[in-house]
Design a protein around this nucleic acid. Structure first.
Lengths: 349, 349
DNA sequence: CTGAAAGCGCTAACAG
DNA sequence: CTGTTAGCGCTTTCAG
């Protein structure tokens, strides 16, 4: 009888029915020892070519795929990075860059959304920890990250992107928010604007706060030469943005130029303004497809997503290699792309 | 000496230094057996409350997180779904819906991009198989999917979304491409258009082919009453789209209305047309944020992404529960949203 | 109700 | 060069 060794029912290829083939099944089918199969799977050159062929044939015939969990359990590393972002499945060039960079190093990136929710962030991050991912790329939402402490101590590599983590020391890569606002402000100023409005995201969010603060600083630095007005809040609340626009453009204080604090705000603003596209000069923070859809094209402060994502992966790799490294913080420069929406002088000048 | 049992160096909380705490460490710290810790972790009610408390204290003190890989290895299921889409980190309401639906069932979704590349698709799908995910949501790219066969036989649940898989029987959920084109065509026809152009994606891609075919069928069904012109190809090749537009709008055959075959094409077309926005009536396939940015608002054929994603997860759950189920194919209806860009009669009528 | 022990599928160290 | 064996960290019998 065939299954005298307790292998159970086998089909024509020696493949067990009703259960996934294991390395033992492959070994039996190829008439070699378990260790030999393992060596073949792991490309160990010290196996006789003839046996390599026999094993590979058996593997192909059975459609064997090694169980990565068991392998990881034994080897200690997972070769997997987790990406926990506010929202995957929205335009996210940083995540895109992370995937590409990781691929060059044969690291698998598995991504999930935090929905900008503290509890969910903790949930998904810990789920990734329980799966023993080697490193995490995190766009942090939560205010508190002490739940990461034991994981970091156990050797987990973490890099925060876009926003820093305040209460725990981890590697960080952010874009130059201040520099971007300064560039936008200077650009508008050089084109003759003296009343500039800023509409941005919530100031409880890091980037929203940074950019609003930078804007106020610019106004202050202009020493009365330029007037500024700031409006921050939910970047998907159209009503609030429409209101802000009305105040800034139609009130007693008509701004001649506008800086929009992120891609969402920009979209909302352009949506509100679409009946009067030329009413005001605009610089948008963040580049996007829609920037080239309007007339004139939108002048933007563009982040270098490739650099952000690439740096994040590099920081992670360095830390996986040596968990004792001091935490680094990298700021990626932004670039102002003048395209037409902010290069005309104000009407009255 | 403390480490007479070979536990190695321990810190104040009984936490091992330089290595992650295991269940054995927790058991030792809580002065209970290994099995008891496991039962507590798995909420087994048959543990004395006093011990439960002691174990949970130890767990909290050490920051213990169970190793999900070992647990899965033993239990046989992973509670994890894989999502392999053309491009996560682009707007992808289906993936968004998948994440939400899965969350309601305590399933973790881990996502990755295939970049619309056959080899990469196979690579990431098999990587997920080796991690023994319970099910896969796949937006298929590859023409051949026979590499899935052994996995399906081994009990892997797979659902194809957006495009079907041709050579392997799996559950499928697609939107009503034909119905959408018919709706758009009928809409334009009812508004008096007699020369309608269609610009779409490559016809080697399923949706591109379906929609182009449906358009041709509509033209044929109109029995000479309506003229149609079709142009398909790379949906991110601006040059090609500009050329198609020129031919259709400025040639000897000036179309009065246009159907754009997907969101990308729509964006490109609108970009080309932004100097002459009102030149032609437009219905776009796929809704998006930019639809509300132009003047007038864009009339679209909208997919029901929530239904698509939700159905995908349900099909997967059903199949995970019973791998013998016959393969099902679900078509989700689309909806035409008339917003203004396609409701004016042609100039000459 | 609790502890001990077997084993999930694999790798690596060890004999041969 | 190859086969055997001891775990990786956990769940789940099975005795007590």
């Amino acid at each position: 009888m065939r299954d005298e060794l307790g292998a159970g029912a086998l089909d024509g290829n020696g493949r067990p029915v009703g259960r996934r083939p294991t390395m033992v099944d492959v070994a039996r089918a190829a008439r070699v020892g378990l260790g030999t199969v393992s060596r073949v799977v792991n490309q160990d050159p010290a196996v006789r070519p003839e046996l390599v062929a026999r094993v590979n044939e058996a593997i192909a015939a059975m459609g064997y795929q090694p169980d990565e969990r068991a392998r990881q359990l034994r080897r200690g590393v997972s070769g997997t990075l987790g990406a926990a972002f506010r929202a995957i499945s929205r335009v996210n060039p940083v995540l895109r860059a992370v995937e590409r960079a990781a691929r060059h190093h044969d690291l698998m990136v598995l991504a999930t959304s935090t929905d900008d929710d503290e509890d969910r962030e903790k949930e998904v991050v810990l789920a990734m920890c329980r799966r023993r991912f080697d490193g995490l790329i995190l766009e942090p939402t939560a205010a508190r990250h002490d739940y990461l402490l034991p994981e970091l101590e156990a050797g987990l590599a973490v890099v925060a992107v876009d926003r820093p983590i305040r209460d725990v020391q981890v590697d960080t890569v952010v874009c130059d928010n201040m520099g971007g606002i300064e560039a936008a402000f200077g650009h508008l100023s050089r084109h003759g604007h003296r009343r500039i409005g800023y509409i941005g995201d919530h100031e409880r969010i890091f980037t929203g706060r940074e950019r609003a603060t930078a804007f106020r600083r610019c106004v202050a630095a202009a020493g009365g030469r330029i007037d500024g007005m700031v409006h921050t809040g939910d970047d998907s609340d159209v009503g609030r943005i429409r209101e802000a626009l009305t105040t800034m453009l139609l009130g007693r204080w008509p701004a001649t130029a506008l800086i929009t604090g992120n891609a969402n705000v920009t979209i909302q603003v352009l949506g509100c303004l679409r009946t009067e596209p030329q009413l005001v000069a605009i610089v948008g923070f963040d580049d996007s497809e829609i920037a080239l859809l309007l007339r004139p094209d939108l002048t933007v402060v563009a982040q270098d997503a490739d650099a952000i994502g690439g740096t994040a992966v590099e920081l992670l790799r360095a830390r996986i290699a040596d968990s004792q490294l001091p935490a680094r913080r990298v700021t990626i420069p932004v670039e102002l792309l003048a395209r037409g929406s902010a290069e005309s002088p104000p009407p009255s000048s």
